[in-house]
Amino acid sequence: MATIDRSNTATAPQPRIHRQVVLPLGKSFEIAFNSIRVRFFRSLITTMSLVLAVSFLSFVSVNTDVANGLLSTGDPALRQALIRSGYDLAPEDTRADSSPKQRWIVILSLLVCVVGIVNAQLMAVTERFREIGTMKCLGALDRFILRLFLLEAGMQGLVGAGVGALSGAAFALLGNLLRFGTRALTTPAGDEILLSVAFATGVGCLLSVLGVLYPAFVAARMQPVEAMRVEQ
């Protein structure tokens, strides 16, 4: 920049106030991804409760899938084995669905997990007030801030819930393998297991985004001066 172009300096007549500020989606992804990468440890903490809750959900539903698979073979020996390992099966039952009590525990664990995410995200957002205020001074709209937080939560959710769902399924399969031998893995329940894993991942993703909604709204609505007055 040896020569400085005077034609686009402030003394030239300038356009008045316009309204166009943008943050392209690709760039949003890039910023959100980098933000997670740089604060990896923080993200790990935020995601931990999600991983656990989702893996529990996945564990329970894969267990049910396997039990159903074993039942559907119609083998009386397997039926006896199921009853021995704690399934309440009446003689006419053809499915071994999870008990209401079990379902409640899963729902409770998911609820606790959402509260944990909200808590962790509120803390994460507070740590980032100055950054948010700065971005707003540079021309970011509330929407940009909201979008960045939602994208971050979505990505964290996808990875965290994915890991949780897979590990939950793996534990369930392992447990069944030990109890029922290789028959547990050769039942025709493959599709249902995949579906359960996908479902658990989806639920986890949703919860992650749900948990960040309130903190992200708080962050996005901050006035730049307020956000930057916070001592850090």
Binding site: Q14, I17, H18, R19, L138
Partner: peptide, 17 residues
């Protein structure tokens, strides 16, 4: 008198902090 978009534009294009 500016709305949120115009204010953001002002901060982005017209003023450096």
């Amino acid at each position: 008198q500016l709305d949120a978009y115009e204010l953001a534009w002002l901060r982005c294009r017209k003023i450096g902090y």
